[in-house]
Amino acid sequence: MRAFEYVSPTTKEQAVALLSSTWGETEILAGGTDLLALLKDDIVRPRRVVNIKEIAELRGISFSMPAGLRIGATVTLQELLDHPDIARHYPALVQAARGVTSPQIRNMGTVGGDLCQRPRCWYFRSGFGLLARDETGRSLVLEGDNRYHAILGNEGPAYFVNPSSLAPALIAYGARLRIFGPRGTREIPVERFFRIPKSEAEREYDLQPNEIVTEILVPPPSAGMVSATYEVRQREALDWPLATASVALVLEGQRVRSARVVLGHVAPIPWPSPEAERALLGKTVSEEVAQAAANAAVQRARSLGKNEYKIQLARVAVRRAIQQAVGGGARR
C-alpha cells in the first residue's frame, strides 16, 4: 500500500471540501472492506483518503408510514439486517444483504459502500483497468477467461458485472439516492445511478469525484406488494453470487398489477428486465408464468465464450425469486 493522507471530517460539507474534483486523487472511505483491498492491490492510488464514518448525519435508519424508509449511507449491512421494520416490509433487501455471508464484512461494510464498491473483474483487480484491455487495446475478457463476466449489457467495451447485491433489491423497490456535492444535494433513482462506462476515464456510476452518497430513500411498501431476492451462489461460505434476481410485485387479488424484476451480477449494471415485467403484468403467477418471465429476462443474454452457464443461472434466479415472492414474501 502506498502512503496517503488520512482525514476524518465530521460534516458532509467538510468532507466534500476535502475531496478532489479529479478521479484518482482522493478516495472516500466507509467500512473499507473494498477500498482497503483496492489500495493494497494498487488499483487505486489516492493521495488522500477521506473517512466518512465520523459524519453523524450519514448514519441511522428510520421508517414510518407514509414516508417510507431512510437508510444512512454508513449504515452497516448488519444494522440493516437487524432492523425490524426492514425485515418486515422489505424482504428482498434483507435477503440480498443476508447473501453477504461473512459476519466480518456485514459488520464493517456499509450500504453506501455496497452501492459504490468497485467491480470484482479479475482483470480490473490485477491492474488492467475497468475495461480490461492489454497494451495493444484488445479486450482481455474476450480473449481470456470470462466465466464470471456479463451475459447481459455485454456489447462492450465493459464486460464486468456490477457486484452489488443490494442495488437490484433497492431498484425493485423504486429507491432513490441522495447525493451531496459542492453544489448541494441532488436526488436520483438508484436505477439511474449505475451506468456502463464507455471509456477508461468514466466510472461505473453517476457520481462526481467530490460527491458523497448520503442516504438511500425507499418508498413505503404499496398495498399488495410481495417481494424477494434469490441468489445463486456456489458456496454457502462467503462467495460471490453467480446471478441474483430481486423482484417486487404488486398483486391485486391474484393478478400482477405492477412488477419490478431486477437481475444482479449478470451485467455491468444492475439489470432491470422490462421483458420479464411485461410477462408478469396482468397475469396470475403460476409456475408457467414465472418460467415465461424468467425466459424473457434472459432473452437478450449472450455468452462471451465461457459464461453461457450464467444464462441458465440468471433464468433460474428470476423464476425462483418470483416464486419465492408469491409463495413466501411478506405481503401487506
Binding site: R120, W122, D134, L140, E143, G144, D145, Y148, W240
Partner: peptide, 14 residues
C-alpha cells in the same frame, strides 16, 4: 488465463 498466462484467482475470494 489463456490471454495473459497468469493465474486469475490468486486470492481467497475466487
Amino acid at each position: 488465463d489463456p490471454a495473459t498466462g497468469r493465474m486469475l484467482n490468486p486470492n481467497m475470494e475466487f
